[in-house]
Each structure stands twice: as structure tokens, then as C-alpha cells.
Design a protein around this nucleic acid. Structure first.
Lengths: 222, 222
DNA sequence: TAGGTTTCGTATCGATCACTATGGAAAATT
DNA sequence: AATTTTCCATAGTGATCGATACGAAACCTA
């Protein structure tokens, strides 16, 4: 596993590319893509500009590599939760609770890089914003897929809209990310997740009630 | 109302400051504070740099004025909903449905300026990020206040945590803002809000059940 | 050791950033 | 009309942006 990249002759690198990438990832996570200057990266990575550009091509490539590393190293909880051999409700619970922990990890920036990285961007960085949107959409799609699997397994009402519920759950995670940025604690986020999960029960109950013929009408219209 | 600022002699302005501020607000809304350059502002506002600086001091002051204008002109729905003479549940419903509409208004950038403006920022723009956080926290506090008022009116269980519920509802609004940025339609957001409001009913029911002595246990643990 | 290859450190590159000095033009005041 | 005051347009300011040119240094192969 070590020395994966074969030496092709020439002077060897005087730094660890993965450690440098980690430093860059944390900086992007904290300040976003455009607001992170090369001067800041240089200091955090402990490298000179030519070292950075030789190893990572340019700032945009460095950011995209940081996204991949973030996806692999920081938010594995999401894939773990959605692929866990548990009922769909428990899987979603693991997902939200994992987010509560990952978004408030000590020593790490609050929230999710896929949101903080570039919600708004200059026209020049539109491609970066689009890339992040793609990551967010992939999460939503993964949630929808897990919900659909649960529905097919009979764990959810057959007439439940998984797309709609996935949008809600993704939105809740996004909201948790911003709350984390605003200083919410892991416990705050867990409480938020609990309330969000209560909606799940209500939504399912509502669908089940409608199915059973005892339609109680819109839940909130009283 | 017109000619509010008295002429103090000298050559009058050749442009409408409010129209220029509107243009700046939309640009900040779309691209965020730091990613909006003066060149972009100059073109969108139809002004020369000295005109901008004479009227608005500097970029930061211009942005803060844009925030005030946004608060007054674009998201009045929030204050309207929270101060409407209706039961608290209906007020919150108005709030979320108002957000669904405001975040997807045709011809306007998606989402909320208070979120898109600067979730992440460079160290130099930390003050701007803090200012936006203050606006977000004010919304959360206003929601909590309305919930507390409803609780005192007997519309909510006495043991309900308004802070916790306010954090959830604020988080949902934040999530709606990001979903809007990612292309969600007003109908998508209304559906998201409906699901979020179902959580409300579940949470209240849960508290009421616990109060009534028929504790059914955590809703989702089955 | 000679040749080839890659990275190293130093010193920048042009472009763009937010911002302003300057001087004349236009309107209000006297 | 004379004076004062403010705004206008032109043309730039120094600073920082992302990204490099250059030649020396350090490795490999032969």
C-alpha cells in the first residue's frame, strides 16, 4: 500500500502530498473555495507555490481533490448508514445522527464542505459551485434509493413518495450543516434530528391512515 | 415620502440610489459578498466607481445596506407570518409557505441572501459572515418568541421546548434555501414544508401523550 | 561518471482586486 | 452674476490574486 506511486526518477518530493491535501481540505472547509487564497494555502500546507502547482496542477484541481478526500475521510457515515443491514427507518436515523456528529467534530470546521465550499460563487467559479451541487444531489439520490429499497421491502407504505421524503431529509441535513456553522452543538443537532425523524413517523402514519380509509385530514389544520 | 434626503446644495445625483441598491442586492444575493466584484457591481448598477463610493462609502457598507433592503423588501413574509393574528401553528405554517415562495421567486436568485451571502468567508470578511449569522439567529429568536407566546396561550404543551423546536424550524428554512439554490421549485419546497410541519404535529402529540400518561415511547424506535 | 528527469527555492509574472486623486461640469446659495 | 457645493468622468493607485520562469539540487539509469 505504501509508495503507491512509483518513483519515476528525478528528485523526490520533500513533503507528504496527503498531509498537504488534508491541510488544504480543512482550509477550504473553513473558508470556502474562492475565499481561500493561495497565500493561505501555502502557509497551511507548508509549501511554496511551485510545490503546490507541481503536485496539484492548479487551485481548482486541488479543491476537487480535497472534495474527494473529504468524501472518503470525513463523511463515510453517510454511505455506512445507507448501506447498513438495518430497517430503513434505522438507516435514516443513523444517517442523521452521523451528520450531527460529523458536522460538529472537535477540531474540524462546523458543517459540511459540500455546502460551505461554495453556495454562491463568482461567474469564474461557477463550475465549482456546480460540482458541489452534484455532490449534494448525489446524497439526495442515495437517500431516495435507500427509501425506495425500504418501500419495496414493505417497510414503508407503497404510496409514499420517496423523492419527496428524500428532499425533506436532505434539506434537514443541509439545515443541520448551517446550524452547525452557527455554533449548534452535537446535542443540538441530535435534537433537531429527533424532531425531523418524528416527521417521518407522522408522514408514514398519515399515509397509512389514508390507506386504511380513516383519513384524518391534513395533520396541521386544526 | 419622496425626497426624503434634503438637498444640501450642489449638483444633484444623476441616478436613483434605491434602484442602484436593488441591483447591488440582487448581485450579492446571486454571487455572495466576496465573489461579487466592484466591476460586476459597476456594470449592474450602471454607475462609475466614484458614484458608488460617494453614495455607499465602500463595498462592505453597500452590502450591509443591501441586507437591510433585502430584509425590508424581500422577506417581509417572515415578520408578517409571525405577527399574524392566527394560532401559532398557522403562523408557523404561513412562515414556511412564505419561505417556499420567497426562495423561488421568478426573476430572483434562489434561496435566501442571509445564507447565500457568505456562509464561508475569508478572514478579512469575517465581520460580514458574522453579520449574516446575526440575521439568521434573529430569525430563530423570533420563531422561538412566537412559539413561547403560543405556549403561553395554551396552544402548545407547557413542557414543549420552544428553543429546540425553533432550531428545528430554522434549520428547515435553511434547508429549503439550499434546496432552492439547487433548483427546487416552489411546489417542491411546499411539499418539504408540509413534511416538516407533520413533524410539528408528531412532536406536539408526543409531548401531549407523555403528559397524558400514555407514553408510547420514542416515535421512531420500532 | 554522464545523461535524463523531476523537484527544489527564488523571484517574480500579468490580471484583477477594492478604492481614489484630480479637475472640470452642473446646480444651489448668496 | 459670483460663489459655493456637490457630483461627474477619466485615469489611475498600491495590494493581492492565481500561476510561472529559471536555474540549481537531488534522484534514477546506464
Amino acid at each position: 500500500m505504501e509508495n503507491f506511486e512509483k518513483s519515476r526518477g528525478g528528485r523526490p518530493r520533500a513533503f507528504d502530498p496527503e498531509a498537504a491535501l488534508d491541510a488544504a481540505m480543512h482550509l477550504f472547509w473553513e473558508h470556502g473555495y474562492e475565499a481561500t487564497s493561495l497565500a493561505m494555502l501555502r502557509e497551511a500546507m507548508g509549501l511554496t507555490p511551485p510545490q503546490i502547482y507541481n503536485a496539484f496542477a492548479d487551485k481548482e484541481t486541488l479543491f476537487r481533490r480535497a472534495l474527494v478526500r473529504y468524501h472518503e475521510k470525513e463523511i463515510g457515515f453517510a454511505l455506512d448508514a445507507l448501506s447498513a443491514p438495518v430497517p430503513v427507518k434505522e438507516a435514516i436515523r443513523l444517517l442523521l445522527m452521523g451528520a450531527a456528529e460529523a458536522y460538529t467534530r472537535p477540531g474540524k470546521p462546523g458543517g459540511c464542505l459540500f455546502i460551505s465550499g461554495a453556495l454562491a460563487a463568482s461567474p469564474q467559479a461557477q463550475g465549482i459551485a456546480d460540482e458541489l451541487k452534484t455532490y449534494r444531489k448525489a446524497t439526495e439520490a442515495a437517500i431516495a434509493a435507500r427509501l425506495a429499497k425500504g418501500r419495496e421491502a414493505g417497510e414503508l407504505p407503497a404510496d409514499l413518495s420517496v423523492e419527496r421524503l428524500a428532499k425533506y431529509l436532505t434539506g434537514v441535513m443541509h439545515g443541520m450543516s448551517i446550524q452547525a456553522r452557527d455554533g449548534a452543538s452535537a446535542e443540538d443537532l441530535r435534537a433537531l434530528a429527533e424532531t425531523a425523524l418524528a416527521a417521518w413517523a407522522a408522514e408514514v402514519r398519515q399515509a397509512a391512515d389514508a390507506k386504511g380509509g380513516t383519513d384524518a385530514g391534513p395533520v396541521l389544520h386544526d
